[in-house]
Simulated assay, not measured.
Amino acid sequence: MLRLTPLLFLVLAACGGNEARFLVDSAAPATVGQIGVRLGTLEVRDVSLPAYAEESQILIEDDTGALQPIKNAVWADDPVRSMTLSLADTIDRQSNATAAAEPWPLESDPHAAVHVRVSEMVARADGNFHLTGQFAISSYDRIVRERIERFDITVPLADTSPGRIADATGAATNRLAVEIMQSLSR
């Protein structure tokens, strides 16, 4: 039987933390009805995030340009998983395509896949949340034209609280989903 000394118990208890966990708000994008895309099924590949955005801590840029963690505030889910699932869910709900995150859950292969590579995902000192990078559409059977497109999304922050950063992250992710759907509609 393992016995914990009082000092070890205090160290382990301190590791538990009392940080607040924040969900990324996945409110529906500002579109009316569904966006018609030119395919029936779409796989959303795991989103590639910068190392600082993959961490559980919620970060904000300070006046010097350094990214600082917000005290006692962490993401409720893994950021890569959360963003990937949010994109897939939004595309599935807001388009005529069936969309799912990888690994593809159906026996038949998807008509296309979207690969998102984020180069910047940060709450800036200027009072805005920035999401930039590129997405690529791949289609092995050439159901749709393959392409790579850049995105540059800015969402104003109401304030720099972790809840507002989570809201802005969700809004930016939804805008990205709309850009992907609009690309697939051409």
Rank of each mutant, 00 (worst) to 15 (best):
N18K: 13
S161V: 04
F22H: 07
D46G: 04
A113K: 15
D141V: 08
D89I: 01
L67D: 08
P69E: 06
L176Y: 00
L7S: 12
E19V: 13
A97D: 09
P69A: 09
P69M: 03
F129Q: 06
E61L: 06
A53F: 01
F22S: 00
I143K: 13
A171N: 11
Q134F: 07
E54Q: 11
L49W: 08
A30E: 15
A125D: 14
L131P: 01
G170S: 01
N72G: 03
E61D: 03
Q134I: 03
A100T: 09
A113G: 09
T154C: 12
A27Y: 03
E55M: 08
A76W: 02
L131I: 04
N128E: 15
D63M: 09
R3E: 10
I148G: 13
R186C: 05
R3L: 14
T90F: 03
L59V: 08
A166R: 00
A172I: 00
S139D: 06
D167L: 13
D25S: 15
L7I: 14
Q182F: 12
I148T: 15
V37R: 09
V122S: 10
D159A: 07
L184Q: 06
P103H: 10
Q134D: 14
G170P: 06
E102Y: 10
A100S: 14
R175P: 04
A30D: 15
L4D: 08
R147L: 13
E179N: 13
Y52N: 01
E102M: 14
P79Q: 05
Q68A: 14
S108V: 14
D46S: 12
S82H: 08
S185T: 11
S108G: 11
L106A: 11
S82G: 11
R38D: 13
T31F: 02
R124E: 02
G170M: 00
V178T: 06
T173G: 04
A101S: 14
G33P: 07
T169M: 00
D92M: 06
D63L: 14
M121I: 08
